[in-house]
Design a protein around this nucleic acid. Structure first.
Lengths: 333, 333
DNA sequence: CTGTTAGCGCATTCAC
DNA sequence: GTGAATGCGCTAACAG
């Protein structure tokens, strides 16, 4: 595999040519270099298991063909899926990918961006964006190639889902099932996906002339625990309870389900729950979750293209259309 | 942030010293270099936002302080948790980490290892090991620093859980609850964790003089889907059904739960289910999952130390002890 | 402690 | 199409 790798110079010597000729013959970017001598060099290189020293090459070329991806947590399945898709598409384009996790701290995010940049990544893809994100503004100021995925601040090139439409579809699904008392469990509104999903929810409610109950719109976090807490708030209320809940991501929905179970409320019967994201788990829950599917692969591909080459081929904000996946957690009232 | 980064040479010129002096003054490895001139260099560097070009530094130093991590899937929560823990401990030691996913293909794994090595990672940590793993044998032959995590082939330095003990505890828990008809849902036996968990299961059964039913030991995959299939096999059998099931990881257990639900079998009542791993989700399932907790952080730390520096400070196989977490998915018969 | 010299391994001028 | 020369930016060996 390696140990003392054979070097370009040595290959050149073996082939009886200069290192520059050897370098050209082995440069993957010139595919029209087919002289006899070039072919010979390639054969020799192949035979001796020559592998270009990427570090040296990167230094000289001034580019690393590496993109850095920033997510809050990799243990968040949506983020893991997003990253896997980005890594795949990048690999197909001969790019290498590195991830870093920033948790929910803007400060940590700043550090991590710096660390990625110090490593000379050619571009960044960020899934951490909040609506007024100073870190991302700083990327723009410094003209650092980057794109946003899943969430946008409306100012950098972004590949996101049509969150408002998705939320509208989700809410409409509940309404079409006959529900009128519908609660929204959402993440913090400072993220664009939360904001637009909330807008979609409200629009669907208003369009159907349904009353919005302020106590039934809850904005805590994005994780299971937040969903559970939100569910506890709704289900332990002395007042009226909602008959349906739209949780703006699947993890929140799972948390709500857990809470419902603890309160002895039958999911899909006493209460309908719809999520957002369609993570692999959702279809395999004891009560499979009705949810909104996001085309992650397509989203990742666009984010990649935006990061690498966003010279006006694409609009600033690129949206993919989500679709409803109906399962057992929702039913007619 | 960057753009045209100021270079060491320029800092040296500004400080009126040679580049080598500047280099030494800014070398993080010499913390005892505190002459007046050195301090001055550092001040100037700080003022001008100097950042060492890591690529050039890596090339010259011949080391990257980067470790490569190989996992099957990042969308497998256990793997994501493992990686996050490795990345954290590595960062604390001033190492950078990159991940790659190999799916379940040994061929792909080989490619990915090569790609990581081409990038000159200083060491590898692999969570992909099977019992007789040619890729890992190859690492040993080529004396490439590496360690195994979660799974071992018994020949490379490894940081794993005590799978046999964990499985014994899990099975014993079911037996102590009065169960006698116990099924095992396990991954493919070619992975050490599956193998040892199966051994622990069998030992507990034998120690308690319980009969092993061959139809009740199922070895499919590691994912939810496999768990669901396995559950379907058990629950749709015309013959006798088990009253308890030990699934050797939480995802399998979730799959089984889904199957149980579909068959109208009440979890924690008609059937007790115990998992393994304690992923965050498990405690928040509608019926919280009894499971075996693995100390991932400690496991990751040891794997890191083994990868970086395994010169006999540690035994070949390092085991962390798992503990039982009792929840509602198991109950007395 | 400091400066000089000499590369790490490769890619890119620029002549021929 | 090829080779000689020249660094990318940094670090290490050596001598003082």
């Amino acid at each position: 595999m390696d140990n003392k790798q054979i070097t370009l110079k040595e290959i050149a010597k073996l082939a009886g040519v200069s290192t520059s000729t050897a370098s050209r013959a082995l440069d993957e970017r010139f595919d029209n270099y087919n002289s006899k001598i070039a072919k010979n060099i390639r054969e020799i290189a192949e035979k001796h298991g020559y592998i270009r020293n990427i570090i040296a090459s990167n230094l000289r070329r001034g580019t690393t063909r590496t993109i850095g991806v920033l997510v809050p947590y990799l243990s968040d399945t949506v983020m893991a899926l997003l990253y896997e898709n980005i890594a795949n598409i990048a690999e197909r384009h001969n790019y290498f990918t590195v991830v870093a996790t920033a948790g929910n701290s803007k400060e940590r995010e700043r550090e991590v961006i710096k660390s990625l940049l110090d490593r000379k990544v050619d571009a960044l893809i960020l899934a951490t964006c909040s609506l007024d994100d100073e870190n991302i503004a700083s990327l723009r100021r410094n003209k650092i190639p980057h794109s946003l995925i899943l969430r946008t601040d409306g100012q950098s090139y972004s590949s996101i889902g049509d969150d408002k439409a998705g939320a509208y579809i989700a809410t409409k699904h509940l309404i079409d099932l006959g529900h009128k008392k519908i609660a929204l469990i959402n993440g913090p509104i400072k993220s664009s996906n939360s904001k637009y999903r909330q807008e979609g929810f409200i629009e669907a409610m208003k369009t159907s002339n349904l009353k919005l109950n302020k106590d039934w719109i809850i904005n805590l976090g994005f994780d299971i625990k937040s969903g559970e807490k939100s569910g506890d708030i709704l289900f332990s209320s002395k007042k009226e309870r909602p008959t349906a809940i739209f949780a703006t991501n699947d993890e929140l929905a799972i948390g709500v389900m857990s809470s419902a179970y603890n309160h002895g409320i039958a999911i899909g019967k006493d209460v309908s729950i719809i999520g957002y994201g369609d993570i692999p788990l959702s279809s395999r829950l004891p009560i499979p979750l009705t949810t909104i599917q996001i085309p992650f692969e397509y989203m990742a591909e666009r984010a990649f293209n935006l990061a690498i080459n966003n010279q006006g081929h694409y609009p600033l904000i690129n949206m993919v259309t989500p679709t409803l996946i109906s399962r057992k957690s929702t039913s007619k009232i």
